[in-house]
Write a protein that binds this DNA or RNA. Sequence first.
DNA 1: GCCAACGTTGGC
DNA 2: GCCAACGTTGGC
Length: 152
Amino acid sequence: MQKWLMKSEPNEFSIDDLKACPKQTDMWDGIRNYQARNMIRDTIKKGDLVFFYHSNCALIGIVGIMEVVKEAYPDPTAFEQNDKHFDPKSDPDNPRWFVVDLKFKRKFDRTISLHELKEHKQLEDMRLLQKGNRLSIMPIEDLEWDYVLGLE
DNA sequence: GCCAACGTTGGC
DNA sequence: GCCAACGTTGGC
């Protein structure tokens, strides 16, 4: 089972928003980056666990855990003209963008901040901490996953 | 295929 | 709001 980290701006969609969804489950829509798309479409499997990361906010960091409950299917927002993620080049017969469904597992008692993650030498190879990294979905090594959980 | 211009991400 | 570090687009 592979582990992941996914970023979201809490102003747009926070871990509390996910928790408030019906069945505490929602589709992770709006991914418009090919590297992230490929991971969603090809690699992310049902049962995988995902760190929920809040970006672009006052307290940046990992805030909890979710679980993949449905594997890739076409992102419907790409076909909706009024949606901000509308992409006229995504053909319903040959979809360009995909989503997975994620279910809330739990929220940490505190945010494990980006600042804090940077202080741990054991985490220095984390994709998240590499300079210039902008991927909104990335794999997490098992050792990194366990280490982060140990900080909680 | 090159690369300049433009758009986006995301920490600060 | 700034801006570095990307990614994408499109003319050539």
